[in-house]
Design a binder for these strands. Structure first.
Lengths: 314, 314
DNA sequence: CGCCAATTTGAGTCCCATCAATATTTGTGG
DNA sequence: CCACAAATATTGATGGGACTCAAATTGGCG
């Protein structure tokens, strides 16, 4: 239902308007077999900044145009090792990024969606370190890195904004790493759903009811779990009453629980607070959470605690 | 022995030379109690680029100076929530970065050392999301973000280079996340040591014999393991003969093993190769590794495999 | 309908966290 | 310098959470 934005009617006009300063020999995007429909849309700098949630007051940006490209589900935006030429901004659709290890196993690293920036990892080394695959039909805006670079030191604000976007991306990765190493399986899945809901609502979709665009397998890879564990945990959360699951349809019932639940970290992982760390003003919210978070004994599984939790939550 | 670079003699000269375009009101770095010795050194743009491994051919950079600041082991370069004003480049010394959760537990995210850039996560939101703590006495170069920003669109190359550095940082995080979710405890520790060795040798130190600057606790937090597991794994690797461990002294015997060892990932995590992924030219090295990697049965622990492995390795 | 992929569910096993105890090192003050 | 305390590491025993193997079920699609 909700998550696939109705894409604008696709007419296959191939005449693409390009600003004079756009990279001349427009990148051949892929040597991969298969048909691809070049989008009929173009965006100017203002559109892009809006998409990225960047404030850009200058009004010179109207003349600088960027090409849209359509990808069908399953197609790759870029592959590992491919020469890096473009950054890409997701206009609509859902993707995954990941790496492939020596055994052919895929390791999913992120699920980009509208407004996300793809290809940052290619700047270093001029070569993509990850691959990006469309999970649904996608509309992607290409930003030739050369163009991007030129614009950066023409419009100071823009440059600043790009640093900000990269910083945000870095933050996400860190949050992810933190989650991966500190939380148990149940909490991982819970936060995964919570984060999805939040991102969806930021995009204007429903954050309470949505479809998963990715397989259980991809979720498992992303969270560092076995596929069976993901499945079991989903049903457990369902039976707990905090979500509803029907195949890939998800309905979030208790968002707070999903966001705050974590397994009990024993005193073991507590590192002595170093020296002169004044208590400082911990955010008021933090304090509340500390007391309200439903902390489950590590000795029980979610399923066994239905009643126990029902008491806590009601 | 090796890892603590002999710091230049510290004279407390407070007269800091500043370029005219450097930020006027120089940032008050910390409201934290304790004594801090302002460094007597300053670096120009060229020094910094060299430190960051950036090629910067322009010769205008000599006049732009950046302040050095000394931190003693245990001091914090910045705290979580602190207003973001400076990026910081590690000139010498060893640090850790991390976040503190609701329970006061620290989650270690990285171990920056010479040449690394600190504070990127603060660009977004103008506020530090992580804290950075000196593990040893450190010499840090402050780069006021405002100055940095100004320089960026003055020197095009420099801007490019900064994007590159941020891209590299992002790559590291991704590699980390990938490792955290895909590897077992033994492989985590092995790769941790391997990565340390590689970074040390890149810095000109010995990559084979070095001191750990961090506690087992911090390693455990970084790798998402229990401290006991780290300890046990170290002794296991020691008894395997691939490393030597004596407290925080590490000697790497079999670097290849450390780098390539991983637990057997079952078919479970194998995702069907999507569509038209031509076999492509996999790097020759990859193929070799695929066959040479010592893959251990998941059913045994390192300790139990001494002989078995000895056979494989010899 | 029949095939294949995705998902669910069950049973068994193992890796790793946990608890506990000891050893070693570091730091501090007398 | 030594003694005492606190932090840091090591080692063992144990249990549980998540992986593994296996089979059943569902859903998609030609």
């Amino acid at each position: 239902m909700f998550l696939v934005p109705t894409s604008a009617p696709a007419s296959n006009i191939e005449s693409i308007a390009l600003a004079p300063n756009a990279h001349a020999n427009f990148p051949s995007l892929s040597n991969e077999a298969g048909w691809r429909c070049k989008g009929d849309l173009w965006s100017n700098l203002h559109d892009i900044c809006e998409l990225l949630n960047i404030r850009f007051s200058s009004n010179k940006g109207k003349e600088i145009l960027f090409q849209h490209v359509r990808y069908k589900a399953g197609q790759k935006i870029h592959k590992i090792g491919q020469h890096f030429e473009n950054l890409a901004i997701v206009n609509c659709g859902f993707l995954k990024t990941g790496v492939i290890d020596e055994y052919g196993s895929e390791q999913v690293l992120s699920f980009p969606m509208k407004g996300d920036l793809l290809g940052i990892d290619g700047i270093y080394n001029q070569c993509h370190a990850t691959e990006a695959v469309a999970l649904s039909d996608c509309d992607i805006i290409l930003v030739p890195y050369k163009t991007f670079s030129t614009l950066g030191h023409t419009y100071a604000e823009l440059e600043q904004a790009m640093f900000s976007v990269m910083s945000r991306e870095l933050l996400r990765e860190r949050t992810m790493a933190s989650m991966l190493s500190a939380l148990g399986a149940e909490a991982k899945v819970a936060r995964f759903l919570s984060n999805l809901g939040i991102r969806f609502s930021e995009l204007g979709y429903s954050g309470k009811v949505f479809n998963l665009r990715m397989t259980r397998h991809e979720i498992a890879s992303y969270l560092g779990l076995a596929i069976e564990t993901v499945s079991r945990t989903l049903t457990a959360l369902h039976e707990l009453g905090v979500i509803k699951v029907d195949q890939r349809q998800i309905a979030i019932i208790d968002a707070l629980f999903l966001k705050t639940f974590r397994r009990l970290p024993s005193t073991r992982s507590r590192i002595k607070v170093t020296q002169m760390t004044a208590p400082k003003v911990t955010r008021s919210l933090t304090k509340n959470i500390t007391q309200k978070v439903p902390v489950l004994s590590a000795k029980n599984t979610l399923l066994q605690q239905n009643k126990e939790l029902a008491n806590i939550l009601n």
